[in-house]
Computed example of a mutant assay.
Amino acid sequence: MILVIFAMSCKKDSNINNTDETANLTLVKTITNGTHNINLYTENGKLQVGYNKIFLQLKNTDGSLIDNAQVSWRPLMHMMSMQHACPYSTIGKVAGKTALYEGYLVFQMAGNANEYWELNFDYTIGNTAYSANTKIEVTEAAKRNLVSFVGTDNVRYIIAMVAPKNPKVATNDMQAMIFKMQDMLTFPIMDGYTLKIDPRMPGMGNHGSPNNVHLTQSGADKTYYGKLSLTMTGYWKINLQLANAIGTIVKGEEVSGTNESSSIYFEVEF
């Protein structure tokens, strides 16, 4: 259902070049409420389980771009027996762009024939408020890029891999985000943790790699950063251990001669 709070607004003319603003992006979906269109873009044109960087443009019905909107969103998963949200960011302007906005959504599960994700928008242009919503298709990722679990501290965590998106034989920059499930609608970022990594190749004797750096938090966006060493192409399992601020492991096990894998891990294959 599409809902418009106020039906009329003053249009803002724009001569912004739409192609330049979204040149390296692929349209996922256009949402309309009869007054404006909201275009959703990603780099690959998909929404998938895990971390999704999403870009938005708002347009008047005549096609002119809107560059003065204040936008927020609320994702909601409609399941057979319950509803829940997922971790998500605020929405802001892309640096150096005039009418392109950005944010992220971290989906814990894919939709299916009976269960689906809904994305709700609230936005203002000048002093006029609007809303729009739509069903969105969320598919499974090719490899595991998200883990959700209850730790030994009885907290439910969600850890999403942000990078590398295109791994290579090298020491790759690795990024992840760590959230907790406060309730069905609230997923705050967790501060001060350490995400320990141990990449292994199960199909090659479970060998590891040198010069990995565990992920720690840095920067205003509260992302976790580290280094992931991949010494050859193929399938890698990135074994994880999550340590809290005092160094206690709340989930995950060390890889050893008697334990080939942690219970929590990411996957990459290239």
Rank of each mutant, 00 (worst) to 15 (best):
Ile66Gly: 07
Lys165Ser: 10
Asp20Tyr: 14
Glu115His: 10
Gly151Gln: 09
Ala170Leu: 11
Ala132His: 00
Val71Lys: 05
Ile91Arg: 06
Ala23Tyr: 10
Met232Thr: 11
Arg144Val: 14
Asn133Trp: 07
Phe270Tyr: 13
Tyr265His: 05
Thr124Glu: 00
Thr194Asn: 07
Lys135Phe: 14
Val250Thr: 10
Ser64Asp: 08
Ala69Pro: 00
Tyr123Thr: 04
Met232Ile: 07
Asp183Pro: 00
Val162Gln: 08
Pro202Ile: 05
Gln108Tyr: 09
Met1Lys: 13
His84Thr: 00
Leu228Phe: 02
Asn52Leu: 05
Lys29His: 11
Gly151Met: 02
Asn112Ser: 03
Tyr225Asp: 12
Asp183Asn: 13
Asp67Pro: 02
Thr19Arg: 09
Ser262Trp: 09
Asn112Ala: 01
Thr152Lys: 04
Ile16Val: 11
Ala170Phe: 13
Gly34Trp: 09
Asn172Trp: 04
Trp73Arg: 01
Tyr101Leu: 12
Met109Cys: 02
Pro164Thr: 14
Leu47His: 06
Asn18Thr: 11
Val49Lys: 06
Asn39Ala: 10
Asn24Phe: 10
Glu254Val: 12
Tyr51Leu: 07
Tyr130Asn: 03
Gly208Pro: 02
Ile16Gln: 05
Asp62Val: 05
Asn44Gln: 08
Thr30Leu: 06
Lys251His: 08
Leu27Val: 00
